[in-house]
Design a protein around this nucleic acid. Sequence first.
DNA 1: CTCAGTGCAAATGATTTGCACCAGC
DNA 2: GCTGGTGCAAATCATTTGCACTGAG
Lengths: 157, 157
Amino acid sequence: MQEALKSFKKYLSLNNLKLTRQRLLIFKYFMSDVGQLNPEGLLRGVQELDKTISRSTVYRTVKHLHNAGIARCIHRSDGGTCYEPMGDQSCRMICEQCGKTVPVRNPYLECLQQETARQQGFTLFRYQNTLYGLCPDCAERMGRPASPESKNDKRRF
Amino acid sequence: MQEALKSFKKYLSLNNLKLTRQRLLIFKYFMSDVGQLNPEGLLRGVQELDKTISRSTVYRTVKHLHNAGIARCIHRSDGGTCYEPMGDQSCRMICEQCGKTVPVRNPYLECLQQETARQQGFTLFRYQNTLYGLCPDCAERMGRPASPESKNDKRRF
DNA sequence: CTCAGTGCAAATGATTTGCACCAGC
DNA sequence: GCTGGTGCAAATCATTTGCACTGAG
């Protein structure tokens, strides 16, 4: 958290931005919260601490957190957007249903990736592998993905 | 394409849906197009063939294509939504200097990735591997070795 | 013939923006 | 004190929906 706060401050000063009470509050709430939350949830949480903080400020700030590399933005399959603190995992799976993020640990995969880049003459700085799909829980809950499952979206019109 | 058309028809009949002129047209345009396109692009493309097709119909149809497992829906990091025919996965390298994007093809990597997801009970829809770094050209231009030993076995692929 | 499909326009919901006052640095 | 920040309300943008007519099976 101190780490992240430092990079947030750095980002701000590099961009001529100010560390306001609101930004700090949003930052703190965001970092202390477990898991992900959407702008609305962030707003609610933050307003418990300070009634006056506006929705616009939350939206504006979360964008800065994202630009600063502190927040990761997740677009869920249901169209919702949510954010979570950036972890250091560079290989993860995201459930498109519930938005859950699961880190993937496979050293061999990482190794192979580096080797692949190297073979093509690429100097690898960092990488980001994102696997999109269904987590075991959601897969079970849904029966089967991508099939005549239109009951939910079917309606008379 | 015939394959996909068949499953589209199957999906429709299984759900008491009709194969209308509009749906067929949208389906065909979607399948013939290279790469991804968003609803707006799809609408534009389809309207070149038939002025009367409405935005709503495109939206409604693309959803069916998605439910039928024919279209993959992608929520981009910029917030935009786009669709592409199911099937091709993506793995690419982005040069942080010149911005060039280079596709990476390594079947083994893809295979390993799928296997890794499977092992953790994840149903994989698609993945996005992004390697950030320097392309050979920029690395050279910057007078920096691409990587300890990549100069010698550099290859275009 | 019947019920689902369509185009249209209006509605929705998330996110953004213009503006006049407010506060870090 | 200068600049960027904020809250508010209005604006925007993608997507959805209600409706009355049309067309596929």
